[in-house]
Amino acid sequence: MAFDPDPQDPSHRLISDPGCQQLVGYDTRFDATGACRVTLEVGAQHLNRHGILHGGMVATVMDVVCGNTAAQYFDPEGHAAVVTVALNLSYIAATGPGPVTATAEATGGGKSTAHVTGELKDTEGQLLATATGIFRRIRKR
C-alpha cells in the first residue's frame, strides 16, 4: 500500500465531494501511480463518549479509501463510479485526536467487481484498523 508522501507534488490529484467529505472533514488524494490516501484530522467531533475515534468514523474513512481504490482499479485515467457491496472491518487499536491515514490496494476482481484491502494508521505508523471490501462498478448518473 505504497503512497508517495509528498502532497505538494503537482502530479497528485485531490478528490472533492460535496456531501459526506464536507461533513466528516477527510482529505482524499491520489499520487502519480494512482494510489489513494485518505487523511482525517481526528477532532472532538469524531470521538465517541470514551474519547477515542468513533468506529463509524473508521468505517467511513475505510469505505472511502477502499472505494476510491476500486474506482482506480476499473479506470486508472478517470474515476469509475462504484458502490460498496461488502466492507469488513477489524478494529485493532484505539486512537484519540490527531491525524490518521488510510491506504488501500486492489487485490483482484473482474469486469464489474473489485476486491480491495485497506489499512488505517496513526502518525507513528501504529495499525488502527484493517478492511476488506468488494465494490461493484456502476454507470455514472
Rank of each mutant, 00 (worst) to 15 (best):
C20Y: 09
Q22R: 09
T130M: 13
L127H: 09
H79R: 10
E77T: 04
H115W: 12
T84P: 04
F30D: 01
D17T: 07
G109D: 02
V24H: 07
Y91L: 14
A106Y: 01
C36R: 03
L120R: 08
V24A: 11
H46V: 02
T95L: 15
Q126H: 12
A131F: 04
S11V: 07
V100N: 03
R137D: 09
M62L: 15
A129V: 05
G98L: 12
H12K: 13
V64T: 04
T39N: 10
T107Q: 12
D75Q: 06
T95C: 15
H54D: 14
A104F: 01
G110P: 02
G108N: 11
T84M: 10
G51P: 06
H12P: 07
V83F: 11
G133A: 06
I15H: 14
V38T: 03
K121G: 09
L89S: 09
D9V: 01
R139S: 13
L47G: 04
P10F: 00
A32D: 03
L53F: 01
I92Q: 15
R136V: 05
H79G: 07
G34N: 07
T123F: 04
P18M: 13
V61C: 01
R137C: 07
R29L: 04
T101I: 10
V64E: 03
V24G: 05
L127T: 04
Q8H: 06
T132Y: 07
D9T: 00
I134C: 04
L23Y: 11
D63V: 00
R141E: 15
T101D: 13
E41D: 10
G96D: 14
P76A: 08
A44L: 08
V100C: 05
R29Y: 01
P7W: 07
L14Y: 11
P97R: 10
F3V: 08
I92V: 15
T132L: 10
L23R: 08
T123V: 10
F74I: 05
V100K: 01
Y26G: 06
T117N: 13
R13Y: 11
I15A: 15
V64W: 00
V82L: 06
T117W: 03
A81T: 08
T101E: 15
A94L: 01
Y73R: 05
E124S: 08
M1I: 05
T130L: 13
I15W: 14
T28C: 13
D9H: 01
S11N: 14
T117A: 14
L53G: 00
Y26T: 08
A104G: 02
D4M: 05
T103Y: 06
A80R: 06
E124Q: 10
T103K: 08
A129K: 04
S16T: 10
G19H: 09
A93V: 09
Y91E: 15
D27T: 01
T107Y: 08
A86R: 09
D75N: 08
A131W: 04
G133M: 07
E41G: 03
A32L: 01
Y73F: 12
V61P: 00
T60P: 00
V38H: 00
N48Y: 07
G108S: 08
G125V: 05
Q22A: 14
V42S: 09
T117Q: 14
A102Y: 00
C66S: 10
D17P: 03
H46K: 03
V85P: 00
V100S: 04
A94K: 00
T69V: 07
T130E: 15
N88E: 15
V58D: 01
L89P: 07
T132M: 11
